[in-house]
């Protein structure tokens, strides 16, 4: 792993976010090394989604700084490919699969320009990687949950960004989709991309990820899974609610 100022893909410093005077994130410090697969875990309301949104500037913090590859976030446009939570989108929108995937090229297209053959080509390649080629012209209203998630992942792949941030990509998807997503993420990590995933299934942490952030409004701990994914830390993060399940997951490390 790269060390030093330029080895960090993503740095969060003293980040505090509040909604209506209620802090949802309190004084978060986080350093994500380049090429790592990091999970963000924590109970409901821990601020997991808010943290990734703040990292991308979608949520305005009360205080704190975000740096991407050592530069201020505002000057690192296009460095992050974002996969939002599937359930927050309106899947009744009148469009088809290939059109959604093509949206990943809008950032590099710039204002007023329309998508050309090159963009459509990129979109088809990405769709192929998530095994959805035959669904290209399917209206998105007709997709299953797993297919929706694959489409969103394909859209992010089109961006070809150095950092990928995924918010709950395994929520409510079928097992084959989960496998397909993991395969794609492993491939990305293999090419030196940095991956941050808001995750809820403690059992799969050691198998899927190599780093973890335990979050509950405050950052409880972060680092390699082997070092920080401990029963003690889980108890600090989830309180008394962490059951046998989590203990089993942590015990295997």
């Amino acid at each position: 792993m790269n060390e030093g100022k330029n080895g960090w893909a993503l740095e969060v410093e003293d980040l505090t976010v509040a909604y209506a005077d209620q802090p949802v994130l309190w004084d978060i410090d986080l350093k994500v090394p380049q090429g790592v697969k990091m999970a963000i875990i924590g109970p409901n309301g821990a601020g997991k989604s808010t943290l990734v949104k703040a990292a991308m500037g979608l949520v305005k913090p009360v205080a704190g700084e975000v740096r991407i590859f050592g530069r201020a976030r505002e000057r690192a446009e296009g460095a992050i490919a974002y996969v939002p939570q599937r359930a927050t989108l309106s899947w009744d929108f009148p469009t088809d699969v290939i059109d959604v995937v093509t949206m990943g090229t809008y950032g590099r297209l710039g204002w007023f320009r329309r998508c050309g053959a090159a963009e459509r080509e990129d979109a088809h390649t990405a769709l192929d990687k998530v095994g959805m080629t035959e669904f290209a012209r399917r209206p998105i209203a007709e997709l299953s949950g797993g297919q929706q998630q694959r489409v969103l992942l394909a859209r992010a792949l089109v961006q070809d960004a150095p950092i990928y941030i995924l918010d709950e990509p395994f929520q409510g998807v079928d097992a084959p989709t989960e496998g397909a997503i993991i395969e794609v993420l492993d491939g990305l990590a293999g090419r030196g991309k940095t991956i941050v995933v808001v995750h809820h299934d403690l059992q799969t942490i050691p198998e899927y990820f190599d780093a973890v952030l335990l979050l509950n409004v405050r950052a409880i701990d972060s680092g390699p899974v082997g070092e920080v994914f401990t029963e003690e830390n889980l108890r600090l993060t989830f309180g008394g609610r962490v059951g046998v399940l989590a203990a089993a997951g942590a015990g295997e490390v």
């Binding site: 296009g78 490919a81 939002p84 929108f93 949206m103 809008y106 297209l109």
Partner: peptide, 20 residues
């Protein structure tokens, strides 16, 4: 003129913002 921008704004504003 702003067709694709308005489409993205209507479908997924958060993703649009993440593109800048």
């Amino acid at each position: 003129l702003l067709w694709k921008e308005f489409k993205l704004l209507s479908f997924d504003p958060d993703f649009g913002a993440s593109l800048g």
